[in-house]
Computed example of a mutant assay.
Amino acid sequence: MTATAVPDVFQPARLGPLTLRNRVVKAATFEGMTRGALAGDELVAFHRAHAAGGVGMTTVAYCAVAPEGRTERNQIWMRPEAVPGLRRLTDAVHAEGAAACAQIGHAGPVANSRSTRVPALAPSRAVNAQARGVTRAATREDIARVTTAHADAARYAREAGFDAVEIHLGHNYFSSSFLSPRINKRKDEYGGPLAHRARVARDVCRAVRDEVGDSIAVTAKFNMDDGVPGGFWLDESLRVASWLQDDGTVDALQLTAGSSLLNPMYLFRGDAPLREFAATMPQPLRLGLRLAGGRFLRSYPYEEAYLLDSARRFRSALTLPLILLGGISTRATMDLAMAEGFDFVAMARALLREPDLPNRLRADPATPSLCTHCNKCMPTIFTGTHCVLTSRA
């Protein structure tokens, strides 16, 4: 009996109907470059740079499926007017030899209703600091509309030339918030038992797959756990991942964690940039964040592959292709992910500092990443996401 060869992360690989030039994915990081909720030159240049830098696929984040599904009003929402700008972006990415993915989703309770000027939707009505008000409990009609909107968004993405869509099932956005027993207090067919709480996520994935078939790849960003007491946790998450695999609606899962609503640093790890976030906010929010922000932006030590221990449980339980995210900035970590049976790796912050890091890691595996994991890039989403340690000229 011969051992299975470990894949080379920089060799071509299949993702559903796609063949990517390598197994490195630029993870979705909201770019803050879509004034007027449309793709322009800045966003095109951002993703062209990552494609030229050597990733197999770059992910545009974030393409909301409905106006109230944005975290702020300048985010793209998928509609016919968005297609031409996004087509320019995919053409630019393809010209550099990479594939393009659109992250589609609905922010749900993470939406800032003051900015979008539309009430935020959630499984249950609740006072919500993130939404800057009270979230409205989604009706059955709302759920049906949002589900259909995901399918429509996937169709627009295909029309714009995207090779894949990534459905957002993480971070307590709309679908993820229904999965959370802490947030979802419903008593109907969308609340209570896990099978009910998973209905929205499964229906959304089914609607997208039915719309696009195998014409483009369909992946999902999926929470392994919310990182909050009483939230969605590994035991339930493994069951839902198994259901998604059995449903046959996704070609891969990108495994993530944390709650943009309740504990965002659980995903990011490293320093919490409280002072920098506070500087972007008006008073009295600025003072409040400086005084009590540590309760929301908690610090977690950074280490390479910090989601690997949890992700191993998914790898051992599933046959579905999996994308490892979280603390991947060296060739050694990439090779470890391949040896552990993961099909792709996703990089984010390290590529903000060095978009060409994949090319350099391919040429010299000993190349160090210059990312310091200071997380000061996070507050730059309000002015155009970038590494604060590099020039934007």
Rank of each mutant, 00 (worst) to 15 (best):
M1K: 08
D8I: 04
F10R: 11
F10V: 10
F10C: 13
Q11P: 02
P12Q: 11
R14D: 12
L20I: 13
L20V: 12
R21W: 10
A28L: 04
T29W: 04
G32A: 12
M33P: 01
A37R: 12
A45Q: 15
H47Q: 02
R48K: 10
A51W: 07
V55K: 04
Y62A: 14
C63S: 14
T71H: 04
T71M: 14
R73Q: 09
R79P: 03
A82L: 09
T90V: 03
A92C: 09
A95E: 14
A98D: 03
A100E: 04
A100D: 04
C101I: 09
A102C: 11
V110H: 03
A111H: 01
T116C: 02
A122E: 09
P123K: 05
S124E: 11
A138G: 13
R140H: 14
T147I: 05
T148M: 00
A151S: 05
D152M: 06
A154D: 06
V165H: 03
Y173Q: 09
S175L: 06
R182L: 15
R186I: 12
K187H: 09
Y190T: 00
G191V: 00
L194W: 09
V200Y: 03
D203W: 00
E211Q: 14
A217S: 14
A220H: 03
F222C: 05
M224Q: 00
D226M: 06
V240M: 04
D247H: 09
G248R: 10
V250H: 13
L255R: 08
P264V: 11
F268Y: 15
G270S: 14
D271Y: 12
D271L: 13
A272N: 13
L274Y: 06
R275A: 15
F277E: 06
A279D: 14
Q283C: 03
L287F: 10
G293W: 13
F296I: 05
F296D: 08
L307S: 11
A311L: 13
F314N: 13
P321Y: 02
L325M: 14
G326Q: 10
I328F: 10
A332K: 11
D335S: 09
A337Y: 00
G341C: 01
F342P: 01
F344E: 03
F344Y: 12
A346S: 15
L351K: 07
R353I: 09
A363Y: 06
A366S: 13
A366H: 04
C371W: 03
C371M: 02
M378Y: 01
P379L: 10
F382G: 09
T383V: 15
T385D: 05
S391Y: 01
A393I: 00
